[in-house]
Design a protein around this nucleic acid. Structure first.
Lengths: 190, 190
DNA sequence: GAAACCGTTTGCCATTTGGCAAAAAGCAAT
DNA sequence: ATTGCTTTTTGCCAAATGGCAAACGGTTTC
């Protein structure tokens, strides 16, 4: 819980009473490696704060290939925010690629926090905006790089994670085939 | 102004008095083609709603190449939301590629609207989230496509704009060189 | 230990894209 | 119409990436 509170405090002030209220609304949950926290077609009714482990968010394109959109690591919120906001089915899967621990806030809990804590909505919207902006920046930077640069930059961005992620997922995230990734790794090591 | 109000009403309710207040805070502005609405290094102190024209958002990478991150067309808000929220200099340029008309809301105006209209912040944060999610989806879809698909999909997404955008900007957006784009266009036309 | 399975690597070749320079086309000013 | 400027196209070749199948390596299962 402490990691969550520290994270929230980066985006706005909360007094001790408010902090305790937030803590009281969060429910701990664990998932094993290779489980699905969320699935396409289902309407999300909660938000998760990931305290341990790595998620990957993926979908299937028209050719039926599974595409990894991005990875989510510790100390980040996880939800398909538009499906959540608009109460519509999500089109993406959220998949654990390691054992994960998270703190869950139901939609009802979020609404209570929103009504009780002045400034809560602002904190949440700042977090949402920052998370999205990071994704947009990362992905749009990737578009302008070749695959080798994308791979190397992934290491600097996720130094601890790069070796915990199956290469097939990483390849799809980098927009290349597993064989190409394998060749790139070979070239780099020499 | 009507387009703006209709846009806002998609995300939440506003009564007539609130609508009038919003209108009273918006200031019309025009920019000619090939001007900069915002520049890297400057801290944004306002938000623009684009009613006519096309922006492109771009930056310079380490190699000094200008990279087009994305285009913004009519009926969308424009701002580097994180720089705006955190009062820090932006790292991107916002450039008109056609003559543009927009409605400007100063930070002060936004704060007044936020304090006066219950639910204003929620509307704004939903808009922000939706805008970002669209960008993330678009860009991350592009990562999984080859350049020809990216080019064709751009047409379906921006049917009216594709022919108004210089190909050099489009190439950089698609992550390829102008010559590659030219060859792709040649192949398609045959 | 053998077999089956899964993820990764490699080899081979086709296709795509980049880099560079020149040519062509479009556009504005005179 | 001519000139100058910019954008786009083209040609040439090199480099990067994809597609496919086979090989390799590690793990699990029996």
């Amino acid at each position: 819980m402490e990691a969550l509170i520290n994270y929230l405090l980066q985006f706005g002030h909360l007094n001790q009473q408010q902090i305790d209220l937030v803590k009281s609304k969060g429910v701990l949950r664990e998932l094993k490696k290779d489980e699905y926290y969320a699935e396409a077609g289902k309407t999300p009714r909660e938000i998760a704060f990931l305290t341990e482990g790595i998620f990957r968010v993926c979908y299937y394109n028209k050719q039926g290939e599974e595409i990894t959109k991005y990875f989510i690591d510790e100390n980040n919120f996880v939800v398909d925010i538009n499906s959540y906001n608009q109460n519509i089915p999500s089109s993406e899967y959220i998949h654990t690629i390691t054992d994960c621990r998270m703190i869950i806030f139901s939609k009802e809990a979020m609404q209570e926090l929103s009504m009780t804590i002045i400034g809560w909505d602002v904190i949440i919207s700042k977090i949402t905006a920052k998370g999205f902006a990071e994704k947009v920046n990362k992905i749009s930077t990737m578009m302008a790089e070749d695959a080798t640069e994308r791979y190397l930059n992934f290491f600097t961005k996720f130094p601890k994670l790069a070796n915990r992620i199956p290469l097939s997922y990483l390849a799809s995230y980098l927009g290349i085939t597993p064989s190409s990734l394998s060749r790139i790794r070979k070239n780099i090591s020499s």
